[in-house]
Design a binder for these strands. Structure first.
Length: 470
DNA sequence: CCATGTTTACTCATAT
DNA sequence: ATATGAGTAAACATGG
């Protein structure tokens, strides 16, 4: 069986969770209480940009997600079981409770090390690193909420999911949110309501449960690939304030008790552990070649800008709400019956199957159906990646990558999300498939072989080689 | 009561 | 400088 390693954010917390998500998806089918609902509201006509941000999808990056680690080592892609180290339970490896250093061989995400400064902890240098967002509670995943929502939708393999599923998926797959102030859920709801690309699908009368379902407006999904959306800014890396404080507190000189010096400080073992944990998370303890920081897309992230540092108000989260944060796989976010049905999100992304499909040519970026004129008739250039669907044989994806000869800002901004969008869209949504590919998301699949070619094209750039990160 | 959903207001970062 | 996007906070309504 094959496996693949990626530098993409998806890779750690999500990509490596493929199986988990697939499982969850299958379970979500029943869990959502969805039978074969008519997807109402699926033909939003208004394509007004305002309040519609699918830039995240455009910026999804398969560059990070799919580019093979090395051209000459493509076969290695299939020889490494990167997800083998992934915790069986997303919470099992929760370093917020138990120190959990990153495993060198496990799937990891590109750490967009725009780290907030932690005086006394991380003096300087936020080298691009690798962060396992699934287990790293310190660093906020560099995804917009819209992205997270879509990830959840993708993971569910369904076109519509419930809010509680979104909550659960995020908390299960992004450790940060398990410990973060739960107000992020408010932001999720806010995003769902405000963002036009998300469509609310009311429950059927005979459908039990609370709240409706949410889906992506396929028109926006199309549009995002047309490059119509502007680049969104990426949030600065945010460290879980609670854990950050924990670090600070623990790094106070210990008047007595066992201690050992770290950087002139006398800290207790717990502090040392936390420090190591933090450094592992941030890469502060790793040698980071300057070229990595400058030349790679990982290093293109803006440097620390402690946005949280000048917060205007005291977070509501200082209240007892933090205690509501689910810390068990049995999520309180879900009604008991729903939890029972969905079960824990376990395992990893089934890249094996995905790659098998790719190798067998099952996966196509573009449907054979003339669903998307954009994809059929236009050359798509997504921030340096030029895709010419017209050149693609029918039923196959033919992705032509204009090899980057210079790393302009645009290129450096060519973050993972851009191409991951394709990856995201790649996975068919069974429900829609059965319905005749009437949904863009379901009709968009990608031939991974071609993606490997893409990686080959980029093979000349060491910074883009995943093997550097393995 | 609580989860869900809507809306408004605001700040900040980035693009133009 | 301005527009836009993203995130945050909060108030409020609704329904199970």
């Amino acid at each position: 069986m094959h496996s693949l390693s990626f530098t993409d954010p998806w890779s750690d917390s999500s990509v490596c969770l493929e199986k988990e998500l697939v499982t969850a998806a299958a379970q979500a089918e029943e869990w959502d209480g969805i039978t074969n609902n008519n997807n109402i509201c699926c033909s939003s006509v208004n394509l007004d940009d305002s309040l519609t941000s699918l830039q995240w999808l455009q910026e999804f990056s398969i560059l990070g997600a799919y580019v093979p680690q090395q051209v000459n080592q493509q076969t290695h892609l299939f020889g490494q079981q990167l997800s083998s180290n992934a915790p069986a339970s997303s919470l099992a490896g929760d370093p917020a409770s138990v120190g959990m250093p990153l495993s060198p061989g496990k799937p990891i995400a590109a750490a967009y090390s725009r780290m907030q400064s932690l005086p006394g902890i991380v003096a300087h240098g936020h080298c691009p690193d690798e962060v396992d967002y699934k287990t790293n509670p310190h660093i906020k995943p560099p995804y917009s909420y819209a992205t997270l929502i879509c990830m959840a939708m993708q993971a569910s393999k369904k076109t519509k999911i419930t809010l509680s599923f979104i909550y659960k998926w995020i908390t299960d797959n992004f450790c940060y949110y398990r410990h973060a102030n739960p107000t992020w859920q408010n932001s999720i709801r806010h995003n769902l309501s405000l963002n036009k690309c998300f469509i609310k699908v009311p429950r059927q009368k005979d459908e039990p449960g609370k709240g409706g379902f949410w889906k992506i407006d396929p028109q926006y999904a199309e549009r995002l690939l047309s490059g119509a959306y502007k680049k969104r800014r990426m949030p600065p890396v945010q460290i879980n304030p609670a854990l950050q404080n924990r670090l600070r507190v623990n790094l106070q000189p210990q008047p007595r008790g066992p201690c050992s010096p770290i950087g002139g400080l006398c800290v207790n073992p717990e502090s040392q552990r936390l420090l190591r944990e933090f450094e592992e998370a941030t890469g502060a303890d790793q040698n980071c070649a300057p070229h990595m920081a400058e030349g790679t897309m990982l290093g293109s992230w803006p440097v620390v800008r402690g946005r949280d540092g000048n917060k205007r108000k005291q977070s509501v989260g200082t209240r007892n709400e933090a205690s509501k944060i689910p810390r068990h796989s049995s999520s309180p976010l879900l009604p008991v019956d729903e939890q029972k049905e969905i079960g824990p999100l376990k395992g990893d992304f089934d890249w094996d199957a995905l790659l098998d499909s790719a190798l067998s040519g099952e996966l196509n970026l573009w449907s054979e159906e003339p669903f998307s004129p954009i994809m059929k008739d236009e050359n798509l250039t997504v921030r340096g990646t030029h895709i010419s669907p017209g050149e693609a044989p029918v039923g196959t994806a033919d992705i032509h990558v204009l090899v980057e000869t210079q790393r302009s800002n645009e290129v450096s901004d060519f973050d993972e999300e851009t191409l991951l969008a394709s990856a995201f869209l790649e996975s068919p949504w069974p429900e829609e498939e059965e319905q005749g590919h009437n949904d863009f998301l379901s009709s968009s699949t990608v031939n991974l072989d071609q993606l490997f070619d893409l990686g080959e094209s980029l093979g000349g750039d060491p910074s883009l080689r995943l093997d550097n990160l393995i």
